[in-house]
């Protein structure tokens, strides 16, 4: 049971990376990049988990009650925001590649050939 969360993170990273390596379409590749990134969410949240602890919100539980680690949750929030912004930027790049070269297959693109 104990290594299961870490294995899930490694599995997500692995299938995402497999998709990136074998991808024939940049849109699909960006989706795979999001899967790789979700591995980091699982890893960080698992690292901050604690059995029997509540969420790090004290609005409805007394001060001093046991809570999970808020620091890694804040890191995941940062991670998600950065991921969303970078995904938008990458999609724009795909759009420009398609406009100029007429293809979104990474293998069909060669640097500097016109």
């Amino acid at each position: 049971m104990s290594p299961l969360p870490w294995l899930v993170a490694a599995w997500l990273f692995g299938i995402g990376l497999y998709g990136i390596v074998t991808s024939r379409n940049y849109l699909h590749l960006i989706g795979c990049l999001s899967v790789v990134q979700s591995a980091t969410y699982v890893l960080l949240l698992s690292a901050g988990f604690r059995w029997g602890a509540g969420p790090p919100i004290f609005q409805d539980q007394p001060p001093g009650s046991l809570v999970v680690d808020p620091v890694v949750q804040a890191l995941v929030l940062t991670d998600i925001v950065v991921g969303a912004a970078v995904t938008a930027l990458l999609l724009v790049l795909v759009l420009q590649v398609h406009k100029r070269r007429g293809t979104v297959d990474p293998d069909a693109l060669r640097p500097l050939d016109r």
Partner: peptide
């Protein structure tokens, strides 16, 4: 603060 995640961020 009661929402620790905002406090940290």
């Amino acid at each position: 603060v009661t929402n620790m995640v905002s406090g940290v961020n």
